[in-house]
């Protein structure tokens, strides 16, 4: 877990550097500071459980069966990207991870539908539908709550509360900032999202609640913190002080927290952990180089994957007047 958190942080830092080097264009939302949520979640569930989220999806994509190279290449818009370079930051998928999503809140009812299919098929699995404190005010989140409780679906609604919905603090956007209480008849738990032991245990509890005990949906609120801005174009310091970010980094950091546990319990030495840090960095560096080497998507792929092959319209217009693609 320590190595994975460190690797995820290194990957996001690499993305940060690539963005600043203007190699990643468009949107890029980093999850630095929130590693305990993604890694803790992955360690509390099984491979066949499903996860769906919106922004800050890079770590989930890797942990759910993707690769660092696949994520970085997707951000770079290369063929080796997990969506062949056609998606970008919020559009990375694996067979058990239904991706990020650019429309905050839209993934939540989709997650309810996914868990309905699990229930219908009698699978012993559940779906984690994740959203942020900002998205929690979207109407369709409540629509999904209602359907999930009405039909007792195995949905775990996970609110990643990083205290800021883009640049607006939770207090200024939500009449009730205790997000775990907003599920009406769906019980909720508030969890320290900066402590990976807590997130892992909470996820195991939620999985047991929905799958083994079949008690219907559950709401988890992970209280966490993002060190960076909302996206790369947001310095993240206009709506909160540098001191606040510094204080969270020095007192609440999820990786340092786990490090402290490990050292206190005598599970590994500082040297051994340092070695892990090094392998994480080397792994990410190698993946970045591989991703950079991947070519950009072919022009023909501009028109693929719109309709199922063979059922397309006769033609689709292209980038300019003369460029019309005939199927």
């Amino acid at each position: 877990m320590y190595r994975q958190m460190q690797t995820m942080r290194r990957m996001e830092m690499a993305a940060d550097a690539l963005y600043k080097a203007k190699l990643i264009r468009g949107f890029c939302h980093l999850a630095i500071g929130q590693e305990a949520v993604s890694v803790g979640l992955e360690h509390g569930i099984t491979k066949d459980d499903r996860v769906i989220t919106a922004y800050r999806c890079h770590p989930f994509a890797v942990l759910r069966g993707g690769t660092i190279k696949g994520v970085i290449a997707e951000l770079l818009g290369r063929q080796a990207g997990m969506s062949h370079g056609k998606g970008g930051s919020m559009h990375i998928f694996t067979p058990s991870f239904f991706g990020g999503n650019g429309i905050v809140g839209a993934q939540v009812p989709v997650g309810a539908g996914v868990s309905f299919a699990q229930k219908y098929l009698g699978q012993k699995n559940c779906t984690f539908a994740m959203y942020g404190d900002g998205a929690s005010n979207q109407g369709q989140v409540f629509e999904a709550f209602n359907m999930a409780k009405l039909w007792d679906l195995p949905t775990v609604f996970v609110c990643e509360n990083n205290k800021y919905g883009m640049g607006t603090s939770a207090e200024r956007s939500s009449s009730n900032t205790e997000y775990f209480k907003r599920g009406d008849k769906i019980p909720g738990l508030q969890v320290n999202g900066m402590d990976i032991i807590a997130t892992k245990r909470a996820v195991e509890y939620a999985r047991n609640w929905t799958v083994n005990e079949q008690k219907g949906p559950l709401l988890l609120e992970f209280v966490t913190y993002r060190y960076g801005g909302h996206s790369m174009s947001d310095p993240g310091t206009t709506y909160r002080t540098r001191e606040e970010v510094q204080r969270m980094r020095s007192t609440q950091d999820p990786i340092r927290g786990l490090q402290r546990y490990i050292e206190e319990w005598g599970l590994a030495t500082e040297q051994e952990l340092k070695a892990l840090d090094k392998t994480a960095k080397a792994e990410v560096d190698a993946a970045v180089e591989e991703a950079k080497a991947s070519p950009e998507p072919l022009i023909k792929d501009l028109w693929t994957d719109i309709y199922y092959k063979g059922t397309e319209p006769p033609f689709m217009r292209g980038r300019e007047r003369e460029e019309v693609h005939y199927y």
């Binding site: 309810a112 299919a117 098929l121």
Partner: peptide, 28 residues
Amino acid sequence: RERVFNTPLTEQGIAGFGIGLALMGHTA
């Protein structure tokens, strides 16, 4: 009634729910 069922009055939810179902390979 497991296969033909009423939903709440929730069009955005119905569409999202159907999309989730179809993502799992179902006929929604």
